[in-house]
Design a protein around this nucleic acid. Structure first.
Lengths: 257, 257
DNA sequence: CGTAACCTTGATTAAGATCAATTCTCGTGG
DNA sequence: CCACGAGAATTGATCTTAATCAAGGTTACG
């Protein structure tokens, strides 16, 4: 009964595509995109499931397109000549990453010369990512100014974020960077109103290890640990494993300047 | 003779607009833009001349639009609570800056709520900048996908640059950052083929003070000075005032790893 | 030719990295 | 359900890099 088999596959594809378009809708890039365009894009995407520490792509792999995290966490990193890992970024569900090459050198992509600039692995089991193939995507946005505009706005936000990160790392010490991290996590929570998740607004549940957090903040694990202790001793926060509680929001804010 | 006077003004405007469109053409953003669109944009721009250290805008000034450096150098910086200057970026002729707000929060601009995020002053006498007013610009690009695409590619390049800067400052020491700076200056020169300017390809003529260079690299003046000395002593470069000569390109490159 | 800005060099200090030794935690298999 | 082993985290001691402080020297320009 090949007919039946075909139907099952087809259903599965429809389901998959539904997952894809639902996930894409949650990104900056594709939010408020008419569903017609969203479907069009979803139709060319692939979903991939990753185990913890599974490699998504490696530095110098041929670039095929960019990704969206549908579920879980993805870490972008390089390794230096001693094999030490340098974390560049950590992406959560709803983030897109590796978009830059699409706009930067589309010719190279057409010629199959573009490479990924870093490594990517999953930080959690059953991390799901969506591949948005560069060339197909490019063809779609060529004719669609809404997407272009969204892209511009999304890239601008990323640009702004990077600029402030650069400023922080250049001019703020580790304590300030950590305070900043904590405060913006809390702010984020207020925004997204994760309150339904039953954890208080002043609580942060780290979904990454402290090693990764340290690398993300631009410090070593030891320094992070010591700084947490210092902040805890002065009554500003409480650290219990991966649960961080901000006890004194204003006090924490005041150390930023 | 009001008629004559009017003609003079008009001629001056045409001249001005010519300067503007010539300058815009040299930017990433507006390169390879059909002259029709270029003229359209030029028609809404203003040219402004600045003396050395003259302020272009200040942190928290109302945002009106973004700028293009037509001539000279512009410094973007913040000041901390002790009044110390933190240089964020230095822009040369052909660079555009402060574009982010245009795409990021156009509504705020319409409502007159957007602010500049930092200060900007000229670093040279007779620095010329072109203001591209946000709202007019926005109206023009809404209908023009070529410009959108250029913008995307230009922002992507900026994004990539920032990412690599962030990586450098996080993971490379001052010596490596300086080596990197020297090497990419040389590379730039090779690209733009400034050879007609009669200075050898391995020479870099700093157009900014070493204080500003230090800040740009993310170090202090003293450290910069010492590092230059170290590199000079090991025969890799020669420093004579603001003239830097790379004596051993490969050797310099090898210290990057 | 004198003054201010620019740059260099030296001495000291501080932040954070590195190295090293434990302790804690949690998942897995017996 | 316990034990054990690995990875995660803490804590301490030491070292390195680059900032800070301080004092001269150089250059450029009115």
């Amino acid at each position: 009964m090949p007919q039946l088999k075909f139907n099952i596959r087809s259903d599965r594809n429809i389901l998959k595509r539904e997952v894809i378009s639902q996930s894409l809708k949650k990104t900056d890039l594709f939010a408020n995109l008419p569903s017609k365009e969203l479907d069009l894009i979803s139709s060319v995407c692939c979903l991939r499931k990753l185990k913890k520490n599974e490699i998504l792509f490696l530095d110098n792999d041929y670039y095929t397109g960019f990704y969206c995290v549908a579920e879980g966490i993805v870490k972008i990193f390089k390794t230096d000549k001693e094999g030490k890992e340098k974390i560049i970024h950590i992406f959560h569900s709803g983030n897109t990453f590796a978009e830059v090459p699409v706009f930067e050198n589309i010719d190279k992509i057409y010629n199959g010369e573009a490479k990924f600039p870093a490594n990517a692995t999953a930080l959690m089991n059953s991390t799901k990512v969506i591949l948005i193939p560069a060339i197909e995507f490019h063809n779609i946005i060529k004719q669609n100014s809404t997407i272009c505009f969204n892209l511009l706005s999304s890239l601008s936000k990323r640009l702004k974020m990077l600029q402030s990160q650069l400023f922080d790392i250049k001019f703020q010490d580790v304590t300030k960077r950590i305070a900043n991290f904590l405060l913006s996590e809390i702010e984020n929570k207020k925004d997204i109103e994760k309150i339904y998740k039953r954890d208080a607004v002043n609580e942060i549940n780290l979904d990454i290890s402290k090693i990764d957090l340290a690398a993300y903040i631009g410090a070593t694990l030891e320094t992070l640990s010591r700084t947490f202790k210092k902040l805890q001793d002065s009554g500003l926060i409480q650290v219990k494993g991966r649960k961080l509680t901000v006890l004194d929001y204003k006090g924490l804010k005041s150390i930023l300047n």
